[in-house]
């Protein structure tokens, strides 16, 4: 029975279990994105401050988070923090913390880019019309940065979903782990299960990310 490995997917609740596994990573990425957006907006505004001290701090934070592979950050949070401070964070919590820290840095950089892309004469014109700083920010700056940021934020979401696939390497039972369990359980009856299971996981990730990417591209075209 060379090519019957596909049957494994329809046995019992296997397919449902895979979907549940995918939901574990999707949930982590969704929570991280939702937390990263407000934090990233604050961080982005913080980065545009002229204060040299705040500039240095935000720069070091951004560069460190950016240059380290996310898996290294996960290892530091999961293995290192436990050891150094004696907090024993669960894998879920440390993954969420890492992805929020990473998302905040990325989102902050996007916000900063959008903020500094507004030409100075717009501020001058607003002040010339007698608007206060707050009014300028609400009526002039926010609407323009908002449009620029929405597609970029949606893109960040797909990156987050793809990156959260790493959590299997710190022992979270997500879709790849469930896939492995299914393959191991059917090793003798369906030796070719691995091909189908990992193929389906590949497609599931694609189906999760692709619509979001398409939406981002459309919005970018319309508002760009």
């Amino acid at each position: 029975m060379q090519d019957s490995g596909i049957n494994v997917l329809f046995m019992g609740s296997n397919f449902l279990r895979l979907l549940e596994g995918l939901c574990v990573t999707l949930r982590i990425s969704l929570i991280s994105v939702i937390l990263s957006i407000p934090l990233g907006i604050f961080f982005g505004i913080f980065m545009t401050l002229k204060n040299p001290f705040s500039k240095a701090i935000s720069r070091i934070y951004l560069e460190f988070i950016r240059i380290m592979p996310q898996l290294v950050l996960l290892f530091i949070a999961y293995f290192g923090v436990t050891r150094a401070f004696g907090w024993s964070l669960s894998a879920d919590v440390s993954a969420t913390v890492v992805f929020v820290l990473w998302g905040t840095a990325e989102m902050g950089d996007l916000v900063r880019g959008a903020l500094i892309s507004i030409p100075k004469n717009q501020y001058d014109s607003a002040f010339a019309l007698g608007m206060t700083k707050a009014q300028t920010f609400i009526h002039i700056v926010v609407p323009q940065t908002f449009r620029r940021l929405i597609p970029l934020t949606i893109n960040l979401t797909t990156r987050m979903i793809k990156t959260t696939s790493l959590v299997v390497l710190i022992g979270i039972t997500e879709v790849l782990k469930v896939g492995k369990q299914i393959i191991d359980a059917n090793r003798f009856e369906y030796p070719s299960a691995a091909l189908w299971v990992y193929g389906v996981i590949f497609l599931l990730y694609f189906l999760a990310c692709w619509p979001i990417s398409v939406m981002a591209k459309k919005l970018e075209k319309r508002w760009g």
């Binding site: 793809k162 990156t163 696939s165 790493l166 790849l176 896939g179 990992y198 996981i201 990730y205």
Partner: peptide, 9 residues
Amino acid sequence: NTPLLVQLF
């Protein structure tokens, strides 16, 4: 639109 880890597996 797919993660490298899944591609590798």
